[in-house]
């Protein structure tokens, strides 16, 4: 009932909102586009001044990287491909481990009692602090070490969100399933997981973001390819334009992927009354 009234309120308020935004169009544009643009330009000027570079340098560098490649002859697209390969691999491993683990911890109290403290002890260690150790553990297998770092970065947000989502399952929904004689696996697949889906999705989005950041750091230990590596070697040979264009590309790819997550979330979780993306 309440939610229906809410929905009605939302429906009523939508056209009003449009009218408002029509009336304050100029103000809106100023706040949402012009001011941010000015701030970005000022920030850029500061960066450009401190690093002694210009927009032209960055654009030229971008074109050069795309067509001719870096100082070692690798094209930009190869770096992007390699970075995406590593992050997807690490992220998939994180999904496959964190979601089942999160569901068990969230649903079974004994698992929470045992593993809760373990998770709390390891979670505060920043993923990047694992880099030196991971090189040792993977015996200089760089790809393994880098994927491990991404996994560490993405694992905890997905785990924590999954656990929270599962714990927030309405007991009455589980009771309904029980009155129909549902088995535990049916309760998991038909009640617990669908009702935790919003939190799990948020966990995936956050986990991917952190995984992406960790990747760039992890690539700076070497590997010959990858956007993080590109930033590092370009700085070493003193080509600031290339450094900045690689940085911008890292940001752009991260943004695009998290946007894709949002779209997916919006489509899959249409049942949520208040889904605001």
């Amino acid at each position: 009932m309440e939610s229906q009234q809410e929905a009605a309120r939302v429906r009523q308020s939508v056209p009003q909102g449009r009218k408002d935004s029509g009336r304050f169009d100029i103000k809106n544009i100023a706040i949402k586009i012009i001011l941010p643009a000015i701030i970005l330009i000022i920030l850029w000027e500061v960066v450009a001044f401190l690093s002694g570079t210009s927009i032209i340098d960055v654009v030229n560098a971008f074109i050069r990287l795309s067509i001719e490649g870096d100082s070692e002859g690798h094209l930009l697209i190869d770096h992007v491909r390699m970075s995406l390969f590593r992050v997807v691999l690490g992220f998939l491993v994180a999904i496959l481990t964190a979601i089942p683990f999160g569901i068990t911890i969230g649903r079974y109290k004994i698992m929470n009692d045992v593993f809760g403290p373990v998770v709390d002890a390891i979670r505060p260690i920043p993923p990047i602090a694992w880099i030196p150790l991971s090189i040792l553990m993977f015996r200089a297998n760089l790809i393994g070490a880098q994927v491990f770092i991404i996994w560490i970065g993405a694992f905890f947000p997905i785990l924590i969100n999954t656990t929270t989502g599962v714990q927030r399952t309405e007991p009455v929904h589980v009771d309904v399933a029980k009155t129909f004689g549902a088995t535990e696996s049916q309760i998991l697949s038909k009640i617990v997981i669908p009702s935790a889906a919003p939190e799990i999705f948020a966990g995936l989005r956050i986990g991917f973001g952190i995984g992406w950041m960790c990747l760039v750091a992890a690539e700076m230990i070497g590997g010959g390819l990858g956007l993080g590596y590109l930033v590092l070697i370009m700085q070493q040979v003193g080509r600031t334009g290339e450094v900045i264009s690689a940085m911008l590309l890292i940001g752009l790819i991260g943004f695009l992927i998290s946007y894709v997550f949002l779209i997916m979330e919006r489509n899959i979780l249409r049942w949520r009354p208040g889904v605001s993306v």
Partner: peptide, 30 residues
């Protein structure tokens, strides 16, 4: 754990992620 009773709970208990139809067919699906 027997399943011979249909229960209507005090609080609203429809699954918000299922449509009206999806909710009604839940028991048949199981």
């Amino acid at each position: 754990g027997h399943n011979r009773i249909g229960f209507i709970f005090q609080q609203e208990s429809l699954f918000p992620w299922r449509t009206v139809r999806g909710n009604i067919e839940f028991g048949l699906e199981l």
